[in-house]
Amino acid sequence: MQASPPAGTGVCFSAARRWRMAETVFWLAAAATFFGLPGYHLLLTEIAIIGLFALSLDLILGFAGIASLGHAAFFGLGAYVAGLLGKHGWGDPLLGLAAGAGSAALLGFLTSFLVLRGSDLTRLVVTLGVALLLGEAANQAAWLTGGADGLQGVEIAPLLGRFEFDLFGRTAYAYCLVVTFVLFMVARQIVNSPFGLSVRAVRDNALRARAIGVPVNSRLVAIYTVAAAYAGIAGALLAQTTQFVSLDVLALHRSADVLLAVVIGGVGYLYGGLIGAVFLKVLQDVFAGLTPQYWTFWIGLVLVVLVLVGRERAVAGARDVVRRVVGIRRRTS
């Protein structure tokens, strides 16, 4: 062996690990919306939830390279589990989150074996199939879920036994924001860990990943399960803050919306999902204002244009503009 250079000078990996100023700015801005935009708490709550859901999808799409058309399966399951708990007297919010996460993780673990094999296409079909299957189940089991009428009578206890969920969504927004922040920090840690690196290795080149000793399948199962748990928590948050669950949580457009959020914000870039959620929600709001019933048309148009222009280019361009305006640089991966 040659004489080793000064050990651990830290040049090689630090770029990803270091917490950047811009990240502090981002989260401070998020916290500021709580105090500064009290009239928008309901909308902001929704953005935080979609952001968390998008973060979850990005863990598998951006970091593990698994395209899914049925990520709503986990979101919906989490929502129904938390909603049902609330309806039947187990209204503690954190308990609901845990149950939503647990059940979605279990479903994620079981269905992960379906996405290990086959091509992109098979994965798309299987994930879509799982989501539709769950949607059909929720529809059929009307005695449990309320079917097409939705799950009503969900009652959520005060957060930590102290903070009531008020009509203006103050508690709800603070709650969602904190949960999203905590889970974001965990995701950031996962992505920058040896585990995260090995998942990216699998995405880039599974053949080589195997050749350096990465157990490809178990890593994919693990990340898929984690992502499912995240989606379950996002769904549980929605059920708890709206105190209502409808079949809509399992619908195809849920999966497509979240895909759009990730794509708008940038794939494989943790803040992408959050930023994409802001854009998506604002777009939806604007479009819904223009043509109340037909806003999906414009969402579709955004997708089409985005792809035709080139996602990378569009996102990079937008990022450039943001960078110039705010004068910040950020990159987590």
């Binding site: 080793s4 050990a7 990996f13 690990r17 840690q189 860990s193 040896p194």
Partner: peptide
């Protein structure tokens, strides 16, 4: 350490030193 998620890659001196070697 491939399934370690609670520690960042960057902080692990042992790995960094070996990578540089």
């Amino acid at each position: 350490r491939g399934s370690t998620w609670w520690r960042s890659l960057g902080g692990q001196r042992e790995i960094e030193a070996e990578v540089e070697t």
